[in-house]
Simulated scan of single mutants.
Amino acid sequence: MELTFDGEIWYWRGPAPWHFVTVPDDESAAIEAVAALITYGWGMVPVTVRIGGSEWQSSLWPKDGGYIVPIKAWVRTAEQLEVGDTIEVRLTVGA
């Protein structure tokens, strides 16, 4: 399954701080429909993420009935991204 959406980068300060983009409701619903077939536990869903010219393997994290995409530091540096930036995210779900 291929999905493309725009989202804003936000920062979570928890015990392990990280940057994320929230998957919109419609795309989260599409992922939820196949998640049971591809999750490897804890609701994590394997994906290939593409932002700009950067691509990497990751997992969507379940949150508040939807999913969030973790954005690695090297991607933020390579693509010159900051908290609050709205970006296009391309996902290949189950990759």
Rank of each mutant, 00 (worst) to 15 (best):
I51H: 06
W74A: 08
E79Q: 14
T39C: 00
A95L: 08
S58G: 06
G7P: 07
A78I: 08
A73M: 11
T77W: 01
D85A: 03
L91A: 12
T22I: 10
P15Q: 15
E55F: 07
W18S: 12
L3M: 14
T39Q: 07
F20A: 11
V83Q: 11
A95C: 04
Y11Q: 09
E55M: 12
I71R: 09
K63I: 02
L81A: 03
V23N: 10
V21K: 11
M44P: 02
K72R: 12
I87R: 12
R76I: 04
V45L: 06
E79N: 10
L3H: 03
W10T: 12
D6A: 14
F5V: 12
E8K: 15
W61M: 04
Q57T: 11
S54N: 09
A35G: 03
E88L: 12
T77A: 07
R90Q: 11
E2D: 13
G53N: 13
P46Y: 02
F20D: 06
W12K: 01
Q80R: 06
W12D: 05
W12V: 10
A29L: 09
T22E: 08
I31M: 03
M44D: 02
I51S: 05
Q80H: 12
L60K: 08
G14T: 12
V23D: 00
I71Y: 00
V89W: 04
S59I: 01
V69I: 06
Y11L: 06
Y40V: 10
L81G: 04
D85S: 03
